[in-house]
Structures are given as C-alpha cells and as structure tokens.
C-alpha cells in the first residue's frame, strides 16, 4: 500500500471504532453491571493490527480515547485516565500475544483482558483495592466470553476483507 492509503484506512477504522463506542453508550446494558460493555469498538482496533501493524492499532486505540473524551467532555478527567490506561494495557497485551503467536480470538481475549486489567489497576489504586477485587471475577469472565466473541467476529471480517484488499 502507498502511504496515503494507510492514512485513509487508519482514519476510517478510527472513525468506525468511535461510532461503535458511541452506539454502545446509547444501547441499554443487559449485563449485571451497566459499566461493563461488550466492546465492539475493539473490532476496528484488531482489524488495524492484522491489516496494517501494531503501531497503527495503538494510534487507533489511543486516538479513540482522546477524541471520545473531547467529544463527551471528560478530557483529562479521572475517567479519561481510566480509559487511556486501559487502552495502553490493551495494546501491550496485543503485543504480548503477537510475541506468543496467538490466534485471532485469543489475541482479542488478551486485548480485552488487558483493557480491563488496566482499568482495574487505576480503580484499585484510587478507590481502594477491595472495591476493585470485588469486580475481578466479573472482569475475567466477561473478558473471556466477550473477548472470544469479538475475536471470532474479527476473524470472519478479516477473511472477508483480505479477499478484497
């Protein structure tokens, strides 16, 4: 691909990720705690990782948090730091699964686990570890279930996209 095509593809995937995040904010949550989300905005991030490279998926992931925080008015607030640490951890876990040569669903699981773990550490540090530890089993179980679901969706999309790319 030529350089300008990279820019266009990354921009489109970033916009897609933000739209998924916004739609998820609008939908009512059916999970036991409304703070938990399925994480559809992770699909474009995984697509960026597999179609381009890790650096651009980090751009999409962190860019999404930055732009969403500017749009919804929590830029540089506490919520912003919770989200940005989650995004950084998620990218680190994607890098880790790349080193361990994991499959697409497992990479998705690891990225969702990293996202939650980053948020878990920030919340534990600021609001007390007993609160954070209470949510630990939920965090892990939902990371496994929804990480794998998102991973399989991404895998199907990757197979469809790579035929046309």
């Amino acid at each position: 691909m030529i350089k300008s095509k990279y820019v266009v593809v990354i921009g489109a995937l970033l916009a897609l990720s933000m739209i998924f995040g916004y739609i998820e904010m609008l939908l009512p949550s059916f999970l036991p705690n409304p703070a938990f989300k399925i994480g559809f905005s992770q699909i474009p991030i995984l697509l960026t990782f597999y179609l381009i490279n890790l650096k651009s998926s980090a751009t999409v992931s962190i860019g999404k948090v930055l732009l969403m925080s500017l749009l919804f008015g929590y830029f540089l607030n506490y919520l912003f730091f919770v989200n940005i640490i989650g995004a950084i951890f998620s990218i680190f876990f994607i890098w880790l699964s790349k080193q361990l040569k994991f499959s697409v669903p497992m990479t998705s699981l690891m990225s969702s686990l990293g996202h939650n773990l980053g948020q878990f550490i920030v919340i534990g540090y600021t609001l007390g570890w007993s609160i954070a530890l209470f949510y630990l089993p939920l965090i892990i179980v939902f990371s496994i279930i929804f990480g794998l679901i998102i991973g399989f969706i991404s895998k199907i999309l990757l197979i469809k996209i790579e035929k046309r790319f």
Binding site: S130, L133, F134, L136, P137, I140, V141
Partner: peptide, 11 residues
C-alpha cells in the same frame, strides 16, 4: 478461570 473462581469465593 481459576483466578476468577477463587476471587469469586473470596469476595
């Protein structure tokens, strides 16, 4: 899953 189960019974 083990960590989740253990922490579930602890908390």
């Amino acid at each position: 899953t083990m960590i989740a189960l253990i922490s579930f019974f602890l908390f």
